[in-house]
Write a protein that binds this DNA or RNA. Structure first.
Length: 431
RNA sequence: GGUAGGGUGGGUGAGAGGCUGAAACCGACAGUCUUGAAAACUGUUAUGUCCGAAAGGGCAUCGCGAGUUCGAAUCUCGCCCCUACCGCCA
């Protein structure tokens, strides 16, 4: 949610920016609703003041008939006004929650993801002396991917992952974990990218996979609900990304400035309904209802938020380079960055089996948009309290694994293991 | 899941219908003293929100929600969570 004071002072800007992000909002209506809510509140507060004063008169003595009579009147009026207030407040909240975050100055303007801007392309696209297979042809031949049985057991968009593929996935995750918890490597990444951020390591987290409605909504990641799995009979949802349960972890808390930035690397199986993507990516394992992912999350003071975001992208690039995968960095345009985002970067990997780039990573910078409703704050050195800035980003998921299969395949269907993963694969070179 | 006891500020913990946003102590911060530090003493020390240029003032918050009452941290009901024991379980 945006700050209502900011909206008030920058109504035209907010209106314009919301439209550029593709959201239909009426800022003047929001402000009107805020005014209505406020004027009712002021009436209530002056009545409450009278009630409090009346009640203070009875501190040593019994209240007079007069006081009780007036008190009853006040009670009735307050009850009445509170009903109108509740309605006015709800209307205001519904309206203000629709307004997306302001985007960062350097975000390209665009009406759809087609207008995202490729910032750079890194790594050589491999040339094959044979026709490269896609990951499901490779995986099924090796009995690493079994979607037929998964469909029998759980339905479409599920898969059994098996054998060396599983070992490779664990190798990948262990590799990422080792990088993110090694301060020396983080320092190297910071230096190489000329960043001004703390080199504090990431704290590994295995979070809950379920999240309450209230927390999910405060994160502004609950919508669209058709995309989420609801737990029947409970006020719980299956999280769609570890970010959802990591970001809400410190809701209602006030950090000490000295404890920031606070960085987490969380591993979680994530769940998505993939509503509205019928028929898309039905083959292979690029778009399943559940997938494993290692996610970065950080909480920082406002002036460090952007550097933190750039640091996350630098980490993503470091991981992709280490895995020797060809990729490109994409700046998402206004229409594609997402409602709570101020800025968003995607990394797409080259998939020879599909002959195109596919998204493997996202990095999101939310400024204080999420923190406002989460009530995650920091006590600064001068004792003032303010909202923190949140960042999240993919570290590694199963999609880079697909890329390893397709990019590192040999004619006989075996896969060359990236050098950095071999220590985690009993030093084997091929699987 | 059952039974019992609990949830009050950064911490411990008092308060059991009105003078209580809340005692006391600890911690933290600032000051006095000191060459410096400690000790001692003095002061400050929740969050949100509204009005105001500011000074200041109002309102709300004692796990959450509803209710009783002229008046609720305090009484009633529902929910959540904690602790202990029992049951079940990786």
């Amino acid at each position: 949610m945006l700050d209502i004071k900011f909206i008030k002072e920058n109504a035209d800007l907010v209106q314009k920016v919301s439209e550029e992000k593709g959201y239909k909002v009426d800022v003047s209506e929001t402000l009107k609703l805020y005014g209505e809510q406020n004027s009712i509140l002021q009436k209530i507060e002056s009545l409450r003041k009278e009630r409090n004063e009346l009640s203070a008169l009875s501190k040593n003595s019994k209240p007079t008939e007069e006081h009780i009579k007036r008190g009853k009147e006040i009670k009735l009026e307050i009850t009445h006004l509170e009903e109108s207030f509740k309605k006015a407040e709800d209307d205001f909240l519904v309206s203000v929650k629709k307004i997306p975050n302001i985007y960062s100055e350097d975000v390209p303007k665009g009406k759809s993801e087609n207008e995202n801007v490729v910032v750079k392309t890194v790594g050589e696209i491999p040339k094959f002396k044979f026709t490269p297979k896609n990951h499901w042809q490779l995986g099924e031949a090796k009995h690493w991917i079994d979607k037929e049985r998964a469909t029998k057991v759980a339905g479409a968009r599920f898969a059994y992952l098996m054998g060396d593929f599983v070992r490779l996935e664990w190798a990948l995750m262990r590799f990422a974990m080792d990088i993110l918890t090694d301060e020396k490597i983080l320092k190297k990444i910071i230096k190489a990218n000329n960043l001004k951020v703390s080199s504090k390591v990431f704290i590994p987290v295995l979070p809950p996979y379920m999240i309450k409605t209230e927390q999910y909504d405060a994160m502004d990641r609950l919508e669209p609900r058709e995309e989420r799995y609801k737990i029947e009979g409970e006020d719980l949802w299956l999280q769609g990304s570890a970010e959802h349960v990591l970001g809400s972890m410190h809701s209602e808390e006030i950090f000490n400035e000295a404890d920031l930035p606070l960085r987490y690397v969380g591993f979680a199986t994530s769940f998505r309904k993939e509503a509205g993507s019928y028929g898309k990516d039905m083959e292979g394992i690029i778009r399943l209802h559940q997938f494993n992912k290692m996610e970065l999350e950080s909480f920082s003071v406002k002036e460090n938020g952007m550097q933190e975001h750039l640091f996350f992208v630098a980490i993503q690039e470091y991981l992709m380079k280490a895995l020797e995968l060809p990729y490109r960095v994409v700046m998402k345009c206004t229409a594609d960055i997402g409602k709570p985002n101020a800025r968003g970067i995607d990394i797409d990997v080259w998939l020879p089996g599909q002959n195109k780039y596919r998204e493997t990573h996202t990095a999101d910078y939310m400024t204080d948009y999420q923190a406002r409703r989460l009530k995650t704050r920091v006590r600064r050195a001068d004792n003032s309290v303010e909202l923190i800035h949140t960042n999240d980003a993919t570290a590694l998921s199963e999609r880079p694994l697909i890329a390893i299969l397709e990019n590192n395949q040999r004619e006989d269907g075996t896969i060359e293991i990236p050098k950095v993963l071999r220590p985690y694969m009993l030093k084997k070179k091929f699987i």
